[in-house]
Design a protein around this nucleic acid. Structure first.
Lengths: 203, 203
DNA sequence: GTCTATAGGTTGATAGAC
DNA sequence: GTCTATCAACCTATAGAC
């Protein structure tokens, strides 16, 4: 009998992460997951009790490292970071997570407005959003707090759209845009968002 | 017997639109829809054959008027519209559709990456995206076409985030932001995105 | 911890009376 | 066109053997 590289619980988490990212939480059944993981159906309920609890575990496993990276990058930028440094600290950790194939999952979380997922979203993102709002408010003292919140919301939406629908860009532009070149995507989004943050209120 | 205000087919479309917007396409069963519409389950299959076909009908009914409004607003702005005019023509028709309660549906479409919805999305949006990309390219001749596409993608993401997760802003900011004030939201997003479009490439 | 088997509920779609 | 009744397929979750 060939020993497995990882234990059943991790196999389930990996398979669930992949399929949730690909097809969404609703559209992925526990049977899809156990087939992908090559484990028995009942193992899911043994390790995670319910499907909702599995979703929670899948998300929690990935979000905290991203937020930790955000905090450390923001901290590394010193006591008076530029807007660009703040935006990079906010965006780079999640954009570059693609390598581990978890960006689709993050995109899916951003794109699922249902109550349960929203609660997870708030639980894991609210604190880091407050941290970055504070940093941006310090870098842009002339901008009202509400305006900071709005513009961070816009930036997060742009980011989410890359994660969820980035693949559409090459199709619409006949290959002109390449969403898989993450450093270039990051540079573009930071340029765009930084200019947006520096804009004078009203038009 | 009290005559109904609208026929069964329209009642189904209205109920489906409402529930798809609220809870998503997957999470809304045909039984949910027929209960909301107060019609018989079999009526759905009689009028629309399949659920996918119903989804198509619901989306098609709303998207074309929005795109028509976009085209006419862009046309009304004359042969050399400003970036602000172009962005307003693109954003206002969908942001102000909220009054008819269809913004949740639009947000849901933007936020559903699954294959079938994506095909509908492309079918109904690709042409108008090309039209506005062309207008922006004309207004910003120094900007590479790929850059136009990227920045319109960012703007659409910000817009989608308002439609899908705008309700989070008052919660996170303790009521500082009011997403229901659509003219103010439009002004803010246009200010933000116009500055982003005018940004110099690279940082 | 892992399995088989199944309970118990939902779904989309249809057949056939009226 | 609208109804009742129902099918076949799917789902999550669990009980109980090993």
């Amino acid at each position: 009998m060939i020993a497995r590289a990882v234990d059943t619980k991790t196999r389930i988490l990996d398979a669930a992460e992949k399929l949730f990212g690909q097809n969404g939480f609703d559209a992925t059944s526990l049977r899809d997951i156990t087939a992908e993981a090559d484990v028995n159906l009942a193992a899911v309920n043994y390790h995670f009790q319910t499907k909702d609890s599995l979703i929670d575990a899948v998300i929690a496993r990935r979000i905290e490292p991203v937020n930790e990276k955000r905090r450390s990058m923001l901290s590394d930028a010193g006591p008076n970071p530029t807007i660009e440094q703040i935006l990079i600290a906010f965006l780079a950790p999640i954009l570059f997570e693609d390598i581990k194939q978890i960006a689709p999952l993050m995109g899916r979380i951003m794109a699922t407005p249902d109550g349960f997922i929203t609660r997870l979203f708030k639980r894991h993102f609210e604190e880091v959003v407050r941290l970055f709002s504070g940093a941006l408010a310090k870098a842009l003292p002339e901008l009202a707090p509400a305006e900071i919140a709005w513009r961070l919301h816009f930036t997060a939406g742009a980011m989410a759209n890359i994660l969820t629908r980035g693949y559409l860009l090459p199709e619409v532009t006949n290959g002109l845009c390449d969403p898989s070149d993450r450093p270039a995507v990051l540079a573009r989004l930071v340029t765009f968002a930084a200019a947006g943050f520096r804009a004078t209120e009203g038009f």
